[in-house]
């Protein structure tokens, strides 16, 4: 480290945020490796995406604030982009999994009177049973 850090408190905050972000990164990847079913595996990397990368990006932002004295906000751009795209990605992966597992008849029961939402449309929906839109 050749860059001077002015305050010890700032250094401690940056190191703590780095440790927290790294912890959540490894927890997310470990969950992706060890959890038994895909729906549970889908849950683990969201921690890595939001808390892990978020912590490391805030640490980077604070580090450059303490080093140069100027606020740099373009790390927030990556955080905002990841926060916006993580639900879309999880939704697309879950829907792809549901449609592929339905072909193999291995979906678990929903535990409710209605089925999975992408196959069992509610009242007033104009979608057909197989999840495709009418006219296709």
């Amino acid at each position: 480290m050749n860059a001077p850090i002015t305050s010890l408190l700032g250094e401690a905050i940056v190191a703590l945020l780095l440790l927290a972000g790294s912890f959540f990164m490894i927890v997310g990847s470990f969950g992706l490796l060890r959890l038994p079913t895909l729906m549970q595996r889908l849950h683990a990397p969201t921690k890595a995406t939001t808390l892990g990368v978020g912590g490391i990006l805030i640490a980077s932002m604070l580090y450059f604030v303490f080093e140069t004295g100027r606020l740099s906000v373009h790390e927030l751009l990556i955080t905002l982009f990841l926060f916006l795209t993580a639900p879309v990605t999880a939704y697309m992966l879950a829907k792809a999994h549901l449609h592929r597992a339905r072909a193999e008849r291995e979906l678990p029961p929903t535990g409710r009177p209605v089925g999975w939402a992408t196959f069992d449309p509610g009242e007033g929906s104009d979608r057909s049973d197989d999840g495709s839109r009418p006219g296709r």
Binding site: G28, L32, L38, P45, T49
Partner: peptide, 10 residues
């Protein structure tokens, strides 16, 4: 696909 997505985040 999920593993590739997590790989990108890493």
């Amino acid at each position: 696909a999920l593993a590739l997505d997590t790989l990108v985040v890493n």
